[in-house]
C-alpha cells in the first residue's frame, strides 16, 4: 500500500509503517501530515506483509518500484499473523535486513513489553499517545531524529 502524500516528491525517504488497525493508519496519516514530516508513508497490515515487502516477494515481487527501501520501519507490536516481536526477530536474523532501523510503536507501555522489544533488537520504543496533539509532537520528534538527525546505514543497491 502506498500513500504518496500530496505535494511530496517520490524521492522523499520512505517510512514503512506496519499497523493492522485501519483507525490507527488513519490517525497516523493525519499525525504525519499535521507534523509535516517530509517522508513517504507506506503501510503494511501485518508482520507477514512487512517481511514480504522487505524481502520483495509475494505482492512485492516487482521490486523497488512497489517496495521502495524504507529509511526506517515503524512497527506495531500487536498484529495478526506475524506479530511485531516475531517480525523484529526475523529482520534481525536476516543478514540483508539486520541493519534496518526498526522503531516499535505500540499502545502498550508495560515494562515487560518494552524490555522484550529491545531484547529482540528494536532501535527505540514509542508508546502511542492518546491525545492527538501529543501524538503529533511525538511523531515530529521521530521525524526529526530518524529522517534528519541520524546517519542511516548506506542504502542498499
Amino acid at each position: 500500500m502506498m500513500l504518496a502524500l500530496p505535494g511530496q516528491e517520490p524521492a522523499l525517504p520512505v517510512v514503512l509503517l506496519a499497523e493492522d488497525s485501519a483507525h490507527d493508519r488513519l490517525i497516523l496519516e493525519e499525525v504525519f501530515q499535521e507534523a509535516g514530516i517530509a517522508a513517504q508513508l507506506r503501510f503494511v497490515e501485518d508482520g507477514e506483509e512487512l517481511l514480504d515487502y522487505l524481502k520483495q516477494r509475494g505482492a512485492y515481487a516487482a521490486g523497488a518500484s512497489v517496495a521502495p527501501w524504507p529509511a526506517v520501519v515503524l512497527l506495531d507490536i500487536n498484529m495478526p499473523k506475524v506479530n511485531g516481536h516475531e517480525a523484529v526477530r526475523a529482520i534481525r536474523a536476516d543478514p540483508l535486513l539486520r541493519d534496518l532501523p526498526v522503531v516499535a510503536l505500540s499502545t502498550s507501555d508495560s515494562p515487560k513489553q518494552i524490555a522484550l522489544a529491545y531484547s529482540l533488537g528494536v532501535n527505540s520504543f514509542l508508546t502511542k499517545p492518546a491525545r492527538f496533539a501529543s501524538f503529533v509532537e511525538l511523531m515530529r520528534m521521530f521525524g526529526n531524529y530518524w529522517l534528519q538527525g541520524v546517519r542511516l546505514p548506506p542504502q542498499r543497491s
Binding site: 483507525h23 490507527d24 490517525i27 499502545t107 502498550s108 502511542k128 492518546a130 491525545r131 492527538f132 496533539a133
Partner: peptide, 27 residues
C-alpha cells in the same frame, strides 16, 4: 483487558482530540 481494550480506547481519545481540534479550533 490491558491491551485489546486499551487500543480502541486510545483511538477514541485520539479521534476525540482530532475532532476537538476541528470544532474547537484548538485545544
Amino acid at each position: 483487558v490491558s491491551h485489546d481494550i486499551r487500543e480502541p480506547l486510545r483511538q477514541i481519545e485520539t479521534f476525540a482530540s482530532m475532532l476537538e481540534r476541528v470544532v474547537g479550533g484548538g485545544t
